[in-house]
Every structure is written in structure tokens, then in C-alpha cells.
């Protein structure tokens, strides 16, 4: 699971208000290199909630992203390559996503988050 996907996921348990961001418990992180596409990154930059993304990247052991960002940074190749790496190349292979409100753990196995709810959570 990429951090892009993490940034799009929220806890879906009944009664949870925001459920975002899910806290990452990383047991195994893998890197899968992909070609960089600056246009894609610029589009995604608008959509990504930065604070959640920054926190997520740190919990995956990557600490090369700036605390504060603005769209001017998209002109910097160095920023783009770090953004690209954290957004698309780091994968949570094993671990869990934890609901910020209830503490419910959604397991991630073989890179696939399990967001299925129990009957009493729907």
C-alpha cells in the first residue's frame, strides 16, 4: 500500500466522525521504484493532506519531507523526487492502520489493507 492510498483512506466504522488519518503501524516497508511523472505529482499535491502524509512517511521510516509546503516547491526537482518517493515508492507491506478515534486496527497483509468491518461496526 502506497502512502497515496493511505492518504485516501479513513476509518469506516459506524459512529466515527472523521476517522482520518489512520495511524500506521509498520512492520515491513518495501521500496518499489517507479518512474517519476511530474504532472501526476503536481495534481496529487493539491489533493494530499500534507500533515497526514508527513506523519505517515515518518512512521514508514522516511524523514526527508519538509514540515511545511507550498505549491512553489513543485518547481524544485529535489522536492519532487522526495515527494515522489514517499508518495508512490514506499509501500506498507505488513502492519496495520489504526483508527484515530476508536483504536481499531485494520490489518495490512501483503500490501493489502483489510477495511472489512465486523457486523457490529457497520
Amino acid at each position: 500500500m502506497r502512502l497515496l492510498t493511505h492518504n485516501m483512506l479513513s476509518s469506516n466504522i459506524k459512529g466515527v466522525e472523521k476517522g482520518f488519518p489512520l495511524r500506521i503501524e509498520a512492520e515491513k516497508v518495501v521500496e518499489k521504484p517507479v518512474e517519476m511523472n511530474a504532472d501526476f505529482l503536481r495534481k496529487m499535491f493539491e489533493k494530499v493532506e500534507w500533515k497526514a502524509f508527513l506523519e505517515a512517511s515518518r512512521s514508514m521510516g522516511y524523514a526527508q519531507l519538509p514540515e511545511e509546503v507550498d505549491s512553489g516547491m513543485l518547481e524544485s526537482d529535489e522536492f519532487l523526487s522526495r515527494f515522489h518517493h514517499a508518495l508512490l515508492e514506499l509501500h506498507l507491506e505488513e502492519g496495520a492502520l489504526v483508527c484515530p478515534e476508536t483504536g481499531r486496527r485494520f490489518p495490512v497483509n501483503k500490501g493489502i489493507p483489510n477495511m472489512l468491518l465486523h457486523e457490529d461496526e457497520v
Binding site: 500500500m1 502506497r2 497515496l4 492510498t5 492518504n7 485516501m8 483512506l9 479513513s10 476509518s11 469506516n12 472523521k18 476517522g19 482520518f20 518499489k32 517507479v34 493532506e49 501483503k110 500490501g111 493489502i112 489493507p113 483489510n114 477495511m115 472489512l116 468491518l117
Partner: peptide, 29 residues
């Protein structure tokens, strides 16, 4: 989702896979 991962890998393409009911957990973001 496991089988889909294998099918994607066999063709050298990639997708993010999520085990969920329809798009539950994705609706907000």
C-alpha cells in the same frame, strides 16, 4: 484481492488493492 495481485504482477502492471465492501473507507478522501 490476492488473485488480482498475482494477475497484475504476471502482466507487469500495478494497482493499489483494498479489501473492502464497495469503496468503504475511501468515500471521504
Amino acid at each position: 484481492v490476492k488473485v488480482t495481485r498475482e494477475t497484475l504482477d504476471a502482466h507487469g502492471v500495478d494497482a493499489e488493492l483494498i479489501l473492502t465492501d464497495i469503496a468503504s473507507g475511501l468515500e471521504n478522501r
